[in-house]
Lab assay of single mutants.
Amino acid sequence: LRTVEMKKGPTDSLGISIAGGVGSPLGDVPIFIAMMHPTGVAAQTQKLRVGDRIVTICGTSTEGMTHTQAVNLLKNASGSIEMQV
């Protein structure tokens, strides 16, 4: 596991798309980074990659989380965001 910290302002975009989660079209698979926009906050860290499994978001485990719950957690996060992948 590695921990990645990002700074995100209220109008900034992380610039990632995620897939997976409980009840997702892919089945109940762990949440992972499906796409990254090169100008997004996540890409700027140069520490995240497409395919990385997201284990925690700001200390909250993604295990058993639906896709929608994970998306909302990421969208609503601002300031210092910590992810374990």
Rank of each mutant, 00 (worst) to 15 (best):
L14T: 04
M36C: 03
E63P: 00
M6C: 06
M83A: 05
I81M: 07
A19N: 12
G64H: 12
M36T: 04
I57V: 08
I54N: 03
G59F: 15
D28F: 09
V29E: 08
M35G: 15
S80Y: 11
H37S: 14
K7E: 13
S80D: 14
S13I: 12
H67I: 10
Q69W: 03
E5M: 15
M35S: 15
G64P: 01
F32C: 09
V29A: 08
L48E: 03
M6L: 11
L73Y: 05
G59C: 04
S61A: 09
G20S: 04
G64K: 10
R2P: 01
A77N: 11
I31P: 08
K75L: 09
G15L: 01
P38R: 06
R53C: 10
Q46T: 12
T39L: 13
P30H: 01
V29S: 09
V85Y: 00
P25H: 10
G15K: 01
S17Y: 13
P10L: 09
M35N: 15
T60N: 11
L74D: 00
R53I: 15
D28M: 05
L74H: 06
I18M: 08
A19M: 11
T62V: 10
G64Q: 09
G59L: 03
A43D: 00
M83H: 02
D28W: 07
I16W: 00
L26I: 13
Q84G: 09
R53V: 13
C58R: 09
G40P: 02
G79Q: 07
T45G: 06
L74W: 04
T60E: 14
K75D: 15
R2F: 11
L74K: 04
I33E: 04
L14M: 07
I31V: 11
A70R: 04
T66D: 08
G23L: 06
E63M: 09
A77P: 08
K47I: 07
D52N: 00
C58N: 15
M36N: 00
G40R: 02
M35I: 09
L1Y: 13
R2Y: 11
G23Q: 05
G9A: 09
G51H: 05
M36G: 03
I57Y: 05
L73T: 08
G64A: 07
I57H: 03
V50G: 02
E63G: 05
I18R: 02
I31K: 04
S24T: 06
E82F: 09
T11I: 10
G9F: 04
I54C: 02
P25W: 04
E82N: 13
G9T: 09
K8G: 07
G59W: 04
T56V: 02
D28P: 06
G51T: 00
V71P: 05
M65R: 02
M6G: 02
G64C: 06
Q46K: 15
T56P: 06
D12A: 09
P25L: 09
V29L: 09
I31T: 05
P30L: 00
T68Y: 11
E63D: 14
K47D: 12
T66K: 06
M65I: 05
L26W: 11
A34Q: 13
A34M: 07
T3N: 07
G40I: 01
R2M: 13
E82I: 14
E5Y: 15
D12Q: 15
A43W: 09
I54K: 02
V22F: 11
G40K: 06
G51C: 04
K8A: 12
L48M: 08
A43I: 03
V29P: 01
D28S: 06
S80F: 09
S13M: 14
T11Q: 13
I31D: 06
T68D: 13
G27Q: 03
L14E: 02
M35W: 15
I18G: 00
M36Y: 00
A19T: 08
K47G: 12
H67Y: 12
G27C: 04
Q46A: 11
P10R: 10
V22P: 07
G51A: 03
P30F: 07
D28C: 04
G21Y: 05
M35K: 15
T68Q: 14
G40T: 05
V55C: 10
P25R: 08
H67D: 10
F32M: 09
L26H: 12
V4D: 10
D52W: 00
A19Q: 13
I33N: 04
S61H: 10
I54E: 03
T39Y: 11
G15E: 00
G20Q: 05
T3Y: 09
Q44R: 14
D28Q: 06
V85A: 07
I16R: 02
I31G: 04
L1T: 10
G21A: 01
P30C: 07
V22D: 05
I16P: 00
A70P: 01
Q44W: 05
M35A: 15
D12G: 12
K7I: 14
D12P: 03
G20R: 04
L14Y: 09
A34H: 11
A43S: 09
K75H: 11
T66M: 04
V55M: 14
I81V: 13
T11H: 14
L26P: 00
A19G: 15
V50F: 00
D52T: 00
G15P: 03
G40H: 05
A77K: 12
S17A: 12
L73K: 10
T45K: 04
I81A: 03
Q46S: 11
K47N: 10
G59K: 07
F32K: 10
K47S: 11
G27Y: 00
V55F: 08
G79D: 12
N76S: 13
S24D: 04
T68H: 12
E63V: 11
G64I: 00
L48V: 08
G20T: 03
G23P: 03
Q44V: 05
I54D: 01
M36D: 02
L1C: 09
G64D: 08
G20L: 02
T3D: 06
P30I: 00
E5N: 15
V50I: 12
I31A: 03
G59Y: 00
G64L: 05
T11A: 13
G15F: 00
G9S: 11
T56Q: 12
P30D: 07
I81Q: 06
S61Q: 09
T56C: 07
F32R: 11
V85K: 00
L73D: 03
R53H: 14
P38L: 01
T66R: 07
G51K: 01
K7A: 09
V50Y: 04
M65F: 01
Q69L: 01
A34P: 01
N76M: 11
V22K: 13
T60W: 09
M36R: 02
G23C: 03
S78G: 12
M83S: 02
G21P: 02
I81F: 13
R49W: 07
S78Q: 14
D12T: 09
P38I: 00
P10C: 09
N76V: 08
T66L: 06
Q84N: 00
L74F: 09
Q84H: 00
C58L: 07
T60C: 12
G27V: 00
P10N: 11
T39C: 12
R2G: 04
H67W: 10
S13L: 13
V55K: 08
S17E: 15
T45R: 01
N72H: 13
M6A: 02
I57C: 08
T66C: 03
A19H: 05
L48H: 06
D52A: 04
L74A: 04
K75V: 09
A43G: 06
E63Y: 09
G23D: 11
G20K: 02
N72A: 13
G15S: 03
G27H: 00
M83Y: 02
S24W: 10
Q69M: 11
F32W: 08
L48Q: 02
M6D: 06
D52Q: 07
T68N: 12
E5P: 03
H37A: 12
M35D: 15
S61I: 01
G59V: 01
A19F: 07
L73A: 10
I81T: 02
G21I: 01
F32I: 06
T56I: 00
T45F: 02
S78Y: 10
P38T: 07
Q44K: 15
G9R: 10
S24G: 06
S24A: 03
H67L: 13
N72G: 10
N72I: 05
G40S: 06
T62L: 09
A19E: 13
K7H: 14
H67S: 15
C58P: 05
V50N: 07
H67A: 15
L14D: 00
P10H: 10
F32N: 05
P25Q: 08
L1S: 07
P30W: 01
G15T: 03
I33T: 06
L73C: 09
S13V: 13
A34D: 14
G21W: 03
E63T: 12
V22T: 09
Q84W: 05
M35R: 15
Q44S: 11
K75T: 13
G59P: 02
I81P: 03
V22S: 08
G59N: 09
P25T: 10
I54A: 02
P30S: 06
S80I: 14
G27S: 03
L26C: 09
F32T: 14
G51Y: 02
G79S: 08
A77F: 08
I18C: 02
T60I: 14
